[in-house]
Design a protein around this nucleic acid. Structure first.
Length: 709
DNA sequence: CGAAAGGGAACGTTTAACCC
DNA sequence: GGGTTAAACGTTCCCTTTCG
């Protein structure tokens, strides 16, 4: 009955094949949530799909299947971090589940919202939908403390009822808010939302939990012992006509769809609030171009397809709400001038400001048609331009009192520009989006890959309008999307092994490696997941004083005699080579001292891969022994080991230069070898003849992040 | 050549945005 | 106005360069 209704709605939307595919997968996914007695297994699963690829359709299919097969009778749909997102989900839920009745005409499914739980709590448990076996309930829940605790109260209010319900918890955007934001901080206990979610789970007798997201980086990187660490992972593949990272942000995509905003212009736009309020500034050139393209492209669509009656543009510049106001002022001022310009042109005052007007139109026109507009030949276009400009309007989308909400019915204009940031970042669908002007960036520090990717509201089923789309952004952000594309490809390949080959999720998720070619991005918020960067830095050096054992001194003395002389640039060192790590260990017996001394808390040694098979070279770093020089120790017994840095002017292609203590690995004779530097140092406040180490492990060909535990 | 200064990244704290 | 999260801000720490 539920599957039938789902088919009824979705065959129309996405076709019979896609609908059947989703339902088939829904069944597979639900199987993962059941134990050997076909009861909910109280575990966490992860459902991953691309940004704007139809994840909602997928989990609605899961709900329909869960109800029809009687695996579950209750769904908690944790549907979003803000009201816009929740409402969008509620509308989609109601489309399928709002009006389902049995043979006798009785409703069999009720949809509640967490917003009404508190007021109805006392009689909700008496509601007939919570009684009997055949009644199904969906409760949509906002990610908000009060809403979460209302749900918890509801359950604790009547434990008898709830011990019988079989609850499927679906956590939409499950990487945001639900995970413990204190996991990697010094704060006591988990974050509020995470705590309450776990309390809800603990209060239920029969439940399973599915987190749904396009950016699962946090979910796969959290501690495996965390309740929310996934025990199974399923992928949902986008259907025909989907455009995402590979379309917009591959080499080719960048060329075709991305227009670069110069850094100075981005800077000025982000700095809008520093401008004098009484004097509204003009808009930047790149924004003018984006606006021109938006209008011209809208006209092009209207001429080609009668069906497209609306077009949308997104402006995501800064977070601060006051800045949205200023940006709107600047934009509106420009639009007024534009309207006046085109009106004057048609009111037989053709010469007035004509140059300026045509220059503006050509900015977008040239991109679309690769030629300038022809005043006579394109008269039709010009006329349409006049009407289009009259119907362009901008709206601020944020939580301010006067601001609009996305897709609000009061927005009746044909060509709509949304100005905002937080509420335009995650989950929301902007179906007629053709131009995005997105330069929001962290001013200091690194961006998070998941946050950046979730801002890509231009992804989706865009194949019919894609030739009319452009993304305006800075070079830095464009590069971020390219890098995230690489990370996504790798991650999906990895997750497919879990999904398709049936390999153990638990084992693979512990070894998860997120390839990020840049260290300007981290995969997710650092407070949520404890990760370390690998293969970017291959040197691990001793930073703290450790007492030296005799065995270390003995080895040093032994080597001093056996070692051969080698020249690194201008300097002479004594070195000894071994065929691999094991050979070195069996002769020296000091490997454990090296590892212990070198591996301070934040070390970044790469122990992955086959580095232990590589040749080992020991380098004695005190060529002039007996020098009258003593090191002093800082607080906490810290000291500097790599004293000799490279000169800034050193030419690293000339092997006759000394590159510096930390760049010994750059000499041809050291390539591909594990290098152990042994320093013999005297400390002012400690006994003499102390041994300290530096360790270099040849880097892997890729760089990225792994779990830190 | 050792040690300290200087610059930049990591880390811990505060702020802005959002909900009710 | 209180409660919460994510992001911006400001301080500390580490690495490289420069100074004596």
């Amino acid at each position: 009955m539920y599957i039938e209704k789902y088919k009824e709605v979705y065959c129309k939307k996405i076709g019979t094949d896609s609908t059947n595919e989703i339902l088939k997968r829904s069944y597979e996914i639900l199987e993962e949530t059941l134990d050997e007695n076909r009861q909910p297994n109280k575990q966490t699963g992860l459902l991953v799909g691309k940004v704007q690829s139809g994840k909602t359709s997928n989990f609605l299919g899961i709900i329909a299947t869960a109800f029809d097969k009687e695996y579950y009778d209750t769904v908690f749909l944790v549907g979003g971090i803000d009201n816009d997102l929740l409402r969008q989900n509620e509308e989609r839920v109601n489309e399928v589940f709002d009006d389902i009745s049995d043979d006798r005409g009785y409703m069999t499914c009720a949809v509640f919202s967490s917003a009404s739980i508190k007021s109805e709590k006392n009689n909700l448990n008496q509601n007939r939908f919570f009684q009997g076996d055949n009644n199904k309930v969906i409760i949509t829940i906002l990610k908000n403390s009060r809403h979460f605790s209302d749900i918890l109260d509801l359950i604790n209010n009547n434990p008898l009822i709830w011990s019988k319900r079989k609850v499927l918890i679906i956590d939409d955007e499950g990487d945001q808010g639900s995970l413990d934001g204190n996991a990697n901080t010094k704060k006591d206990g988990p974050t509020k939302w995470n705590e309450t979610i776990n309390n809800i789970r603990n209060s239920l007798t029969h439940f399973s939990y599915i987190a749904v997201t396009a950016t699962p980086y946090a979910n796969v990187l959290i501690d495996t012992y965390d309740n929310l660490s996934p025990k199974f992972i399923k992928l949902t593949y986008p259907g025909q006509g989907y455009s995402g990272l590979s379309v917009f942000h591959s080499d080719e995509g960048n060329e075709r769809y991305v227009r670069i905003v110069p850094d100075e212009e981005a800077e000025r736009l982000r700095d809008s609030d520093n401008q004098n309020d009484s004097e509204v500034q003009n808009i930047e050139k790149s924004l003018e171009e984006a606006l021109s393209f938006f209008i011209c492209s809208s006209i092009d669509l209207l001429m080609k397809k009668q069906k497209y009656t609306k077009s949308e543009m997104l402006l995501n510049i800064v977070r601060v709400k006051n800045d949205h106001k200023i940006i709107k002022k600047r934009l509106d001022k420009f639009l007024i001038e534009l309207r006046k310009g085109i009106d004057d042109y048609f009111n037989d005052k053709k010469d007035i400001e004509k140059l300026w007007l045509f220059e503006f139109i050509n900015k977008g026109f040239k991109i679309l048609y690769d030629r300038k507009i022809d005043e006579n030949g394109d008269y039709d276009f010009l006329e349409r331009f006049k009407y289009a400009v009259q119907d362009v309007n901008s709206f601020i989308i944020n939580s301010s009192p006067g601001a609009k909400r996305l897709n609000e019915s009061s927005i009746k204009n044909k060509h709509v520009i949304y100005i905002g940031s937080d509420l335009l970042s995650r989950g929301v669908t902007i179906s007629n989006l053709i131009v995005a002007y997105i330069i929001r960036d962290t001013l200091l520090g690194k961006n998070n890959a998941d946050t950046i990717l979730q801002r890509a509201r231009w992804f989706g089923y865009r194949d019919k309008i894609i030739n009319n789309m452009k993304i305006y952004t800075t070079e830095k952000i464009a590069n971020h999307y390219f890098d995230i594309w690489i990370m996504e490809n790798n991650l999906w390949e990895y997750l497919e092994r879990i999904d398709l080959e049936g390999l153990s999720c638990e084992e693979l998720i512990d070894k998860i490696f997120l390839e990020l070619p840049t260290s300007e991005l981290r995969p997710t918020r650092r407070n949520v997941a404890d990760v370390r960067e690998v293969a970017i830095k291959s040197w691990s050096i001793q930073r703290k004083y450790h007492e030296t054992k005799n065995i270390e001194l003995d080895y040093f003395e032994k080597i001093s005699e056996e070692a051969k002389i080698e020249q690194f640039g201008t300097r002479t060192f004594r070195v000894k080579e071994y065929s691999n790590w094991n050979n070195f260990c069996s002769e020296s017996h000091i490997d454990s001292y090296i590892i212990n001394k070198v591996l301070a808390k934040r070390e970044q040694v790469v122990f992955e891969g086959s580095w232990e098979e590589k040749p080992v070279k020991v380098v004695l770093m005190q060529p002039q022994s007996g020098a009258n020089s003593m090191r002093s120790l800082g607080t906490d017994d810290k000291f500097t080991l790599h004293a000799q840095g490279a000169n800034i002017n050193v030419d690293y292609t000339d092997q006759n230069n000394y590159f510096g203590d930390s760049k010994i690995d750059l000499y041809d004779s050291n390539k591909g070898k594990v290098i152990i530097q042994i320093y013999k140092i005297d400390f002012k406040d400690k006994s003499k003849n102390e041994i300290a180490y530096g360790l270099y492990i040849p880097s892997l060909s890729v760089s990225g992040y792994v779990k830190n535990r």
